[in-house]
Computed example of a mutant assay.
Amino acid sequence: MHPAIPKLLQLQERDQRIRQLQKDLKDVPNQQTRAKMQLAGDQAAVEAASQHVKEVEVKIKSIQLDVQTRQTTIKRLQDQQFETRKNDEFTALGHEIKRYQEDVTKLEDGEIEQMELLEGSKAKLKEAQAKLGETQKRVNEELKILEERAETIKKRLEELNAERKELSAPIEEDTLDLYTRIFHKKGDAAVVPMENAQCGGCHMKVVVGVIQSLKQSESLTHCESCGRILYMVE
Rank of each mutant, 00 (worst) to 15 (best):
E159P: 00
D27C: 02
Y100G: 05
Q10L: 07
Q198T: 14
E142S: 14
K205W: 07
E147A: 13
V191H: 06
N87Y: 12
K59A: 13
H222V: 02
K124V: 09
G110F: 03
K205H: 11
D88H: 11
K98E: 14
D188P: 00
K185C: 01
E234I: 08
I145A: 14
V210H: 06
L117C: 03
F82M: 10
Q81L: 06
R76V: 09
Q16A: 03
Q136L: 07
K61N: 15
Q101E: 15
R164D: 00
L167M: 11
P3F: 01
K215F: 09
I112R: 11
I145H: 09
A40Q: 15
A162I: 05
V207N: 13
R76I: 07
L39M: 13
V233K: 14
Q31E: 15
L65Q: 15
A44W: 02
L9F: 04
E96S: 11
R228V: 08
T221N: 04
C199Y: 09
T221R: 01
E159S: 07
Q114F: 09
P29N: 06
D109G: 02
Q43M: 11
H222I: 02
E111A: 10
M37F: 07
V28N: 04
I74D: 03
L214K: 03
L214G: 05
I97G: 03
K36S: 04
D79Q: 14
A189Y: 08
Q71E: 15
E127R: 08
V56M: 07
G201Y: 12
V67S: 05
L220S: 03
S168G: 01
K61D: 15
E113N: 11
E224A: 11
Q68R: 11
A162M: 06
E116M: 06
T72Y: 05
L132R: 13
L107D: 14
P170I: 00
Q78D: 08
K185A: 15
E147R: 13
I145S: 10
A197T: 12
P193R: 04
L143M: 07
K215H: 10
C223F: 07
D15S: 02
I211M: 12
N87F: 14
K98W: 05
E102M: 09
R99M: 10
R164V: 00
H184S: 09
T175F: 00
H203A: 04
M204C: 11
V46M: 07
G94Q: 11
C226Y: 08
M37H: 13
G120E: 12
L77Q: 10
P193G: 06
S50F: 04
E195S: 10
G110N: 12
T72M: 10
L9S: 04
Q38V: 05
E116V: 06
E127V: 08
